[in-house]
Simulated assay, not measured.
Amino acid sequence: MEDTSSARIRAADADRERVATTVQTAGAEGRLTLDEVEERLSRVYSARFTDELAALTTDLPRPAPPSPGFPLTREALRRHPALRVHLAVVVAIAVLVVVRWAVLGAGFFWPAFPVFWLGMSLLVHARVRSVRQRPRAAVPY
């Protein structure tokens, strides 16, 4: 008979805490009764292997990934110098086209179109940066 326990991975305290948080969240959402939460938490903290932890959350839905906020923030500008340069270029071109419009005395405010597309390019740039920098979510057990 082959020893299957040697192929199993031992659970770390961080693994247990992650599963305990999942169980507590499910209880807070009303997916588990108080008795079920207590029972599962006692089994979480007594689990020795990760497959035992996985069995405690298989019937629970996975959490939805966090929705990203507005991509163009001061923090994003601080972290990404390319965004600062892009913002400076957008502002400089916007000022130039508005000044040109004002000096030429055109009645129709045509700079609205290039300024809009410049702003959109900046938002797309910031969004791409935020998606690339988003940490990968750990898979709960």
Rank of each mutant, 00 (worst) to 15 (best):
R10N: 08
A76N: 05
A28W: 04
I9H: 14
L32P: 10
L60C: 12
V115C: 07
R62E: 13
A20C: 03
A88Q: 02
R100A: 15
A26R: 02
V97M: 01
H125L: 05
A94P: 01
G107S: 12
T73Y: 02
Y141R: 13
R48N: 11
V85R: 12
S46T: 15
L118N: 01
H80S: 11
R129M: 10
P111H: 04
R134L: 08
E2P: 13
T50A: 05
A138L: 12
V23F: 04
T4I: 13
T4K: 15
V19Y: 02
A26K: 02
R129Q: 14
G30Y: 09
L83F: 04
P66H: 14
R16S: 01
E29D: 13
V95P: 02
S6K: 14
R129V: 13
L83S: 04
S5M: 07
E75M: 11
A92T: 04
R62M: 13
V131N: 14
H80G: 07
V128S: 11
I9N: 09
R31P: 05
S5I: 14
L83P: 01
A20K: 06
R48C: 08
D13T: 08
V85Y: 04
H80W: 10
H86K: 08
R40M: 06
H80C: 06
P66K: 14
F108D: 08
T25I: 05
L104Q: 12
E39K: 12
T58V: 15
L72Q: 06
A28Y: 09
S130C: 12
V131F: 06
A55R: 15
R78N: 07
A54L: 12
T21H: 13
M1R: 12
V89Y: 00
I9Y: 05
A126T: 00
G105P: 07
D51F: 12
L41F: 15
G30F: 05
T73R: 07
V115R: 00
W110A: 04
